[in-house]
């Protein structure tokens, strides 16, 4: 699979942010909750490269952790929902009408509520839990892979090419490898890139309305709310989570290449 220039740009942006996160977590001398009450809301300087927040905590450490948390959630959700959705999408076509209908009912139930509302309800059950967020977001996201994979697979199953391989005696795995996977792979990739962006966005949104990851953990949406009151004294602080969220989402959108 060859990437276009803009896709490379997106990938580089994401890798850059990941590197920042990994280096920040491993190399920064400050933890995310370590307070320095003598250095509150200080601008970037030699000790605190990105400044400190209203409790005197190192912004560099907090940003590195927050980005790491976002990527971890994004990647986990993408892998889970892509595997589940693709597998079920292909199965729905191949396993016959009954399975297809059962899955259609399940999907209809999940589509009856906007994704964010489902995630919010799950978040209410276990406030601040990363794993509940992960389960809720994956639960919402696999549906899209399922729908797309199912639609494309339906076309491939009917195609002369697949039919011809079947007649020549090739088995199920061969037909998947040669016919179905090449047809669905580009769409799965695009969905995965958008899915990564959406997972990160959803977590930030929940943090922003204060029902996601809880303090004192660092999370981009939560940091936006926490730092908002200091927008005039320390605008560089509020800018950090806002810019990083936009960069992460933009990176994933560029990587997707196509539009959803």
């Amino acid at each position: 699979m060859t990437l276009r220039a803009s896709q490379w740009a997106g990938l580089s942006l994401l890798i850059g942010l990941m590197l920042f996160s990994v280096l920040g977590i491993t190399l920064s001398p400050y933890s995310i909750s370590q307070q320095d009450l003598n250095a509150i809301l200080v601008p970037p300087n030699a000790d605190h490269w990105l400044g400190t927040d209203h409790f005197g905590r190192s912004m560099l450490s907090r940003m590195a952790h927050a980005i790491g948390l976002s990527f971890a959630l994004g990647i986990l959700c993408v892998v889970t929902s892509a595997l589940l959705g693709t597998a079920l999408g292909v199965t729905a076509v191949w396993a016959g009408k009954r399975v297809d209908q059962a899955l259609a009912i399940l999907v209809n139930i999940l589509l009856a509520l906007p994704g964010l509302v489902i995630v919010l309800l799950f978040a209410a059950i276990a406030p601040g839990s990363f794993w509940v967020l992960y389960i809720a977001i994956s639960l919402v996201q696999w549906v899209e892979y399922f729908r797309v994979t199912r639609a494309i697979t339906q076309g491939v199953i009917q195609s002369p090419a697949r039919q011809s391989s079947n007649m020549m005696g090739f088995g199920t795995w061969y037909q998947f490898k040669r016919h179905i996977w090449p047809a669905i792979a580009p769409s799965v990739f695009t969905l995965a890139a958008f899915g990564g962006a959406n997972a990160i966005l959803t977590m930030a949104s929940l943090g922003f309305v204060y029902v996601g990851i809880q303090p004192p953990l660092a999370e981009l949406g939560l940091m936006t709310v926490e730092l908002f009151p200091f927008y005039s004294e320390a605008p560089w602080l509020l800018a950090q989570p806002l810019v990083v969220i936009a960069l992460m989402v933009f990176g994933f959108h560029l990587l997707a290449g196509k539009r959803a």
Binding site: G221, I245, A246
Partner: peptide, 13 residues
């Protein structure tokens, strides 16, 4: 594209 990269609450802020 640029606006799409911003979550709605970022635009709002």
């Amino acid at each position: 594209s640029a606006i799409r990269a911003m979550p709605v609450f970022v635009i709002g802020v």
